[in-house]
Design a protein around this nucleic acid. Structure first.
Lengths: 138, 138
DNA sequence: GCTTGACCCTATAGCGACTATAGGGTGTAT
DNA sequence: ATACACCCTATAGTCGCTATAGGGTCAAGC
């Protein structure tokens, strides 16, 4: 492979992305199709590396692939208003915030449930009891 | 359907579980196969309703289906030590704790990224910039 | 020149936990 | 008789990969 072209393995090592994942991004329209060598190997330009790095950073920040796609499209048109970018980022942050709150209240319940168990056998287990709905009734 | 038997729709309404999900639980061995009516409709006993309620409560607490399966097996053998129940519950709580921490540090970064954007066009957008890796270099 | 081994290719199936769809049968009320 | 709610099975889709099968390519060493 020529000095300016990168193999899929090069991109993989440079970004810590599995080779299969890179092909997956290509198939799903996140990464443009690169040229090919005579032996049908993908031959990437530096621009591909930048784009893949962008994708990985956005994914690390928890953006969905749809959101990444939108961010990529926006970043390609650099004259556009960045209000749309802000909307996506804020929506994602709100979602993260919501998940934190959900998990925190979940943890409160789990703590209670675990704390309540001082027994030896399942028949008396407060954890199981807290799951089972009045097993004798209904 | 007789007075003591419940249709899948009855179970659905009683537990807030979609009909398809109930069939899914049956196919995946969480809910035992019920008897059938002459017209081949599922005919559930009250015990099925209890079991489904158990599954839904455990799922609401975020236990995986594998964990729910294990909890169900344990709760069926009521003479067993409940130490195994405790292990599952604690493992799940630890996982929830870890997720909360991960999301909290994620939110810190997202807050920074969003806060840093005071621009009008994408070319100057700090959010995009924080994702794009030195676009001119490399 | 031939083999070894690292790398690459495509196509397809699997994960978890459902959800949706297609294409039908059943049961009851009017 | 027919409309309608409800039920049935089987299969495919969701998300973001990951793994597998079954091959082809390329450089190095013998």
């Amino acid at each position: 492979m020529s000095s300016t072209h990168l193999s899929i393995g090069d991109l993989s090592r440079a970004t810590g992305t599995k080779v299969e994942t890179i092909r997956f991004y290509e198939k799903n329209g996140l990464l443009p199709q690169p040229g090919r060598t005579e032996g049908n190997y993908r031959a990437y330009e530096p621009a591909h590396l930048n784009r893949l790095s962008f994708i990985r950073r956005a994914r690390d920040l928890g953006f969905s692939l749809d959101q990444v796609r939108a961010l990529l499209t926006l970043s390609d048109d650099r004259s556009q208003s960045c209000a749309a970018v802000d909307v996506i980022a804020r929506a994602h942050r709100d979602e993260v915030e919501r998940k934190i709150k959900d998990l925190q209240s979940l943890k409160v319940v789990l703590d209670q449930v675990i704390e309540s168990c001082h027994c030896n056998i399942v028949a008396d287990c407060a954890i199981i009891e807290s799951l089972a709905p009045t097993p004798e009734a209904s």
